[in-house]
Simulated scan of single mutants.
Amino acid sequence: MSIATDIVCAFAPAGTLRASINTGNPILARLDASGEAVGVSVDLARKLAARLGVGIELMVFDAAGKSVAAVTGEQADIGFFAIDPARGEGIRFTGPYVLIEGAYLVAEGSPLRDNAEVDRAGHRVVVGRGSAYDLYLSRALKAAEIVRAVNSQAVVDTFVAGGQEVAAGVRQQLQADLLRHPGLRLLPGRFMVIEQAMGLPKSRGEAAADFLRGYVEEMKASGFVAEALERHRIEGASVAPASANA
């Protein structure tokens, strides 16, 4: 498959595709025993570089906000993010490739039993700074106070140490944290569905953005994303349906 030179240059102006990888969301990427980043987002980045015929450099961050800043500031050429209007000011997004649930966690003895009870005066909700659910809850919560942990992986530790009323995060991360912290429980259901997409700096142009959108749709339709989730033993996340504007 021949790709126009201007498209290749838009993605890799220096000849190497710099991919921003966020290991703060273990559903998409994590560090293996050797310290190397692995996961579905890494697989998508490597396959895109191969398709463009360029090398790849993984720029690994431990928090979503840092990963977003790298792409917005053009220190990276592509990234993997939850779609959010605040991030869209500097980034062009594809349609989502994975859907993830955002959930609430409370102490076992908490009187809270339903997601709708969280947004009340006197409740403090711990979130990962700059995460998708931080951005969402900053808009959605009207009465509860938001407390920001350094990143998503530190949310439950911050919650336990600080004695706040609620912790918010990706369901799978919270479920893993339950194993480390007995005496906690998840509220049933979800407070949001997090749409994970690829993105590139807005300055790279609409033609490059269209190419990336098509790439993501192809990776979903071909089974590549589903196979990557299975290969990395990711449970609880689902492949996003085809985008209406694909």
Results as ranks from 00 to 15, higher is better:
138 S>A: 14
138 S>K: 13
138 S>R: 05
138 S>G: 15
139 R>W: 10
139 R>Y: 14
139 R>M: 10
140 A>W: 11
141 L>G: 11
141 L>E: 08
142 K>Y: 02
143 A>W: 09
143 A>M: 09
143 A>S: 10
143 A>H: 06
144 A>H: 11
144 A>F: 13
144 A>G: 06
145 E>P: 08
146 I>E: 00
146 I>P: 10
146 I>A: 03
147 V>W: 01
148 R>K: 14
148 R>V: 05
149 A>D: 07
149 A>G: 04
150 V>Q: 10
150 V>R: 10
150 V>D: 00
150 V>E: 14
150 V>P: 00
150 V>K: 04
151 N>G: 04
152 S>D: 15
152 S>M: 10
153 Q>V: 06
153 Q>T: 06
153 Q>P: 02
153 Q>C: 04
153 Q>H: 07
154 A>R: 14
154 A>P: 01
154 A>L: 05
155 V>D: 08
156 V>S: 00
156 V>I: 10
156 V>G: 00
158 T>C: 00
159 F>K: 03
159 F>Y: 11
161 A>V: 08
161 A>T: 04
161 A>Q: 07
161 A>P: 02
161 A>N: 12
162 G>Q: 12
163 G>V: 12
163 G>L: 12
163 G>R: 12
163 G>H: 15
164 Q>I: 00
164 Q>L: 02
164 Q>S: 07
166 V>Y: 09
166 V>H: 03
166 V>I: 13
167 A>K: 06
167 A>P: 09
168 A>H: 06
168 A>E: 10
169 G>C: 02
169 G>T: 12
171 R>E: 14
171 R>M: 02
172 Q>I: 09
172 Q>Y: 05
172 Q>K: 04
172 Q>E: 15
173 Q>M: 09
174 L>C: 07
174 L>G: 08
175 Q>L: 14
176 A>N: 06
177 D>M: 13
178 L>S: 05
178 L>K: 07
179 L>W: 03
179 L>H: 09
180 R>G: 06
180 R>D: 04
180 R>M: 03
181 H>K: 06
181 H>D: 03
181 H>L: 01
182 P>Y: 07
182 P>A: 04
182 P>V: 07
183 G>N: 11
183 G>A: 10
183 G>E: 10
183 G>T: 03
183 G>R: 03
183 G>M: 05
184 L>P: 09
185 R>A: 05
186 L>P: 15
187 L>S: 05
187 L>I: 01
187 L>T: 12
188 P>V: 08
188 P>R: 00
